[in-house]
């Protein structure tokens, strides 16, 4: 009963091979990490799962289906960069994205605006990087989706916003309804949240396992293991 199944996935671009022989299996209700440096293929992997690109070879199945309109109804994607229209204020964001996600939770969205301390009267382009990240997180958790994809939610963000984002993950993630897939290279602040991690280097999975098992085996933190392995 997998929520995401990836088998022997390859993604080639004209000049590079971004992903090689990737296989992943995600069960519902857990928090999975994809740990790796920039350029390791994390973002490409996430875009393939979100249905923004097609695999070159291999299979991706989300809820048993290929990425497409149906799978997009049940997942939400937090991508890198400024993904929200720059002119939008908070109520514009909620109204627009709220009516495009079929399972949007409006009450939760309001709670999150408070919790994340998002200023209601500033346009997205007027916000600092940290607050833009918070808005993206607001959309993600209000979406009502079962599979939440977070592509590098912490990089380049100031410490206060990072802390808020991590706090939001702990407080608003509901394992009974949601599965998290988080990619990051800033591991230390967030490592206690992962159930299972994949270490990605140069497009390949070099190590994977239950987070606590890896700690027992290596007697090291995820961060330290990453340094060694990547």
């Amino acid at each position: 009963m997998s929520i995401l199944k990836i088998e022997k996935l390859y993604k080639k671009f004209p000049k590079t091979v971004a992903l090689k022989n990737i296989s992943m299996y995600l069960t519902p209700g857990r928090c999975y990490g994809v740990l790796g440096p920039n350029g390791s293929g994390k973002s490409t992997l996430f875009r393939l799962i979100a249905g923004l690109e097609r695999p070159s070879k291999g299979k991706i199945e989300i809820f048993g289906e290929k990425p497409g309109y149906e799978t997009k109804r049940k997942l939400a994607y937090l991508g890198e960069g400024d993904t929200v229209y720059p002119w939008m204020k908070t109520h514009d964001v909620i109204r627009f994205y709220g009516s495009l996600y079929p399972f949007w939770n409006h009450g939760l969205a309001q709670n999150l605006v408070e919790f994340l301390e998002i200023p209601r009267n500033k346009r997205f382009s007027e916000l600092s990087k940290g607050f833009r990240a918070r808005v993206k997180l607001l959309i993600l958790f209000s979406s009502g989706a079962e599979l939440l994809l977070l592509d590098d939610p912490l990089s380049g963000i100031d410490p206060a916003s990072r802390e808020k984002i991590v706090k939001t993950l702990y407080n608003f993630w509901n394992p009974t309804h949601q599965t998290l897939l988080v990619s990051t290279h800033i591991i230390s602040e967030i490592e206690t949240i992962f159930d299972y991690v994949y270490f990605l280097s140069k497009g390949e999975i070099v190590l994977k396992g239950e987070a606590d098992d890896l700690r027992k085996r290596y007697k090291k933190s995820m961060d330290e293991i990453a340094r060694e392995v990547l």
């Binding site: 979100a50 997009k72 991508g79 993904t83 229209y85």
Partner: peptide
Amino acid sequence: RERNTQFFIFSLPVR
């Protein structure tokens, strides 16, 4: 116009 906003919209269930 902004590549990232377009990408994000395409991740939504919108035809």
